[in-house]
């Protein structure tokens, strides 16, 4: 699992997640989002899931925590380019109601 962060404009950041987002990597994503929002003052976040092979309940929890952290700072967290497995799990849990995957990172910032 790897995280790659790219800054976007004065308030945005893109987090690219590669590999499996599970109980091992989820706490790292939570910490990363907290650092970006509260440390760097960037609250408009996009999590690019194009390279994410698998997400479990811990990974979903980290995305929800990130969403709440970003919104509490006046921003938002959106997800982009989710693959088949991630999409299925979002639908299975009903989380697709608050985390709808966009086709591109650019679309998330519009």
């Amino acid at each position: 699992m790897e995280f790659d962060v790219e800054l976007s404009g004065p308030e945005g950041a893109v987090i690219r997640v590669s590999g499996r987002l599970n109980m091992v990597s989820a706490p790292k994503l939570r910490d990363l989002v907290t650092h970006i929002v509260h440390g760097d003052g960037r609250s408009h976040l996009v999590v690019d899931l194009a390279g994410t092979d698998f997400v479990d309940s811990s990974g979903l929890g980290a995305l929800i925590a990130g969403l709440k952290t970003a919104r509490s700072a006046g921003g938002d967290l959106r997800i982009a380019r989710a693959g088949t497995q991630v999409t299925m799990v979002l639908e299975l849990t009903g989380l697709d109601r608050i985390l709808q995957s966009h086709d591109s990172v650019e679309e998330c910032f519009q």
Binding site: L60, G61, L67, R97, I98
Partner: peptide, 8 residues
């Protein structure tokens, strides 16, 4: 939906 755990 906003719960951060308890889905497993």
């Amino acid at each position: 939906v906003f719960a951060e755990s308890g889905r497993g």
